[in-house]
Structures are given as structure tokens and as C-alpha cells.
Computed example of a mutant assay.
Amino acid sequence: MKPVLIIRTGRAPDSIRARHGDFPHWFRVAAGLRPERLRIVDVAAGEALPAAGEVAGAIVTGSAAMVTEKLAWSEATAGWIRDAMDVNLPLFGVCYGHQLMTHALGGRVDYLPGGREIGTQSIETAPGHPHDLLAGGLPARFRAHTTHEQSVLEPPAGAQVLASSARDPNQLLRYGPNAISVQFHPEFNAEVMRAYIRRKRDDLHREGADAARIFSAVGATPIARRLLRRFARRHGWTSA
């Protein structure tokens, strides 16, 4: 059985990692994947990606890096994404992974107008996609955790926008039958979200944001979290 690839583009800050674990663990739990089913490749540390045909699919994680920096490992991963799209490999990008998929496929990524989006947000699904295999079962509104400064400003040609937030019109994109990405973090639980807000408290105060209000508004996001498990089941990564 081919492994499911986690393309690790970064890692959680030390203080968060010490208490809550790190990206691969969060994604494994949220998607319902067995540890032995995974292959983790740390592209930010220079590890080489396998050929797309050697894996059952891939999750592209978040990162503290910026897509617009066009770091060598990031651009190489963008090339791999294009190759994976050519063979219709199942792909699920999150945050940096969302932006990198857009960049790889010809869209535009840059800083989100108005500054960072952080905290538990209301996400609104786009009308007109009732039969989408992933987004079709979503309610009109659901909650999701976010923390990002850059965002998708222009999706690639042909991509479908499936959900948005008040600040970011491109929260959930579909690029093809097997490839989607989300700006929000379905792998976060509420405690991880609170940990990120604590870590960014000084930045938020400096930017004029109400960190206490953002912190108090954090809540459970079961519908957003369920997306990873639904995607995994849809593509045969799990048995249930």
C-alpha cells in the first residue's frame, strides 16, 4: 500500500511543540490516519520528495515562511505540486500549503490587505456547489481556526472558490477533482489556536488588535476539522 505523504514546510514554535506536539501529529489525528500509513518529508530542511506516483496522496502543511520569499525548497515543492496535478494525485494544502498550491498553479499570493487574520473565524460557503464531493455537505456557515499574514489574492485560472471569511475571500479552493486547499487550519484544536494567539499577543497589541477579544472568541471547530477526515476517506487513505 502506498503511503500518504505529509509535506512538512515548517514546524510549530518550540513553546507550542513542547506542549501540543507538532504538525505531522496534528494532521495524522485530524485525518484519522495510522502512523504506519504516513511518510513525512521535511522539505524546509532539504529532504527530497518522492515521485508523485510513489504515494497515495499528499498533505502540504503550514509554515512560518512566506510563499513570496520563493525559497529554493518552496519553489522545488511547487514544481512537485505541478507534477502531482498532472497525474491527479489527491492533494490537500493548508495555510502555507494552500498558498503554495495556488502559486504553483499560476495564482497570486501576497500579504492579506488589512493585516493578519488570527483566531476562530466564521467561514461562509459559496453558493452553487451543492454536489462538490467535499464542500457539498458543508453548512452555509461554520467556524475555523486561522493564523496567517499572507493569503491567496488571485486563485489560479479554473480554480473554484468554495468558501470565504469576512477578511479573506479565498478560504477554500478546489483546483481539480482530487486537489483542494484551505487557508484555515482544520488540524488545529482550540487549545492550539489559543497557544498561537498567546504567542502573537505582543504583535496583536502593536497592530492595534484586541488580543483578549480574539482569545475569548476561540471555540471548537468540528466541521472544519472534519474536512481532513472526509478527504482521507474519500481517497481511500483510511478504512473507516
Results as ranks from 00 to 15, higher is better:
E124Y: 03
L71P: 01
L204C: 07
S165F: 12
R233G: 09
L173S: 09
R167Q: 15
H98W: 04
V182C: 11
K200W: 06
G21A: 06
P24F: 11
F231W: 09
S63W: 09
N178W: 14
Q183P: 01
V182S: 13
Y175G: 07
A78E: 08
L100F: 01
D86L: 12
R199H: 13
R194Y: 12
V60A: 06
A56H: 11
R199A: 10
L89C: 03
S15P: 13
A52Y: 02
A48N: 14
H25R: 14
P3E: 06
P156L: 04
H235D: 12
A31V: 07
R82T: 14
A232F: 14
P113T: 08
E154W: 09
W237A: 03
S164W: 13
G10F: 00
D168C: 12
A135C: 15
T61G: 06
I81F: 05
Q183Y: 10
A45T: 05
K200M: 12
I118E: 10
T120E: 04
S181V: 10
T9N: 14
R143G: 09
N189R: 01
R17V: 04
V161M: 06
D203Q: 01
I16S: 03
K70I: 00
T120Y: 00
V55K: 03
P13G: 07
R206F: 12
G62A: 01
V152R: 08
L133K: 15
T77F: 01
K200D: 10
S239V: 10
L89T: 00
A45L: 04
R206S: 15
N170T: 08
R19L: 08
K2H: 09
G106S: 02
V43C: 00
A52W: 00
A76W: 08
A48S: 11
D110L: 09
L38V: 07
E75V: 15
A78D: 07
P186Q: 07
G114D: 04
E54N: 13
I59A: 12
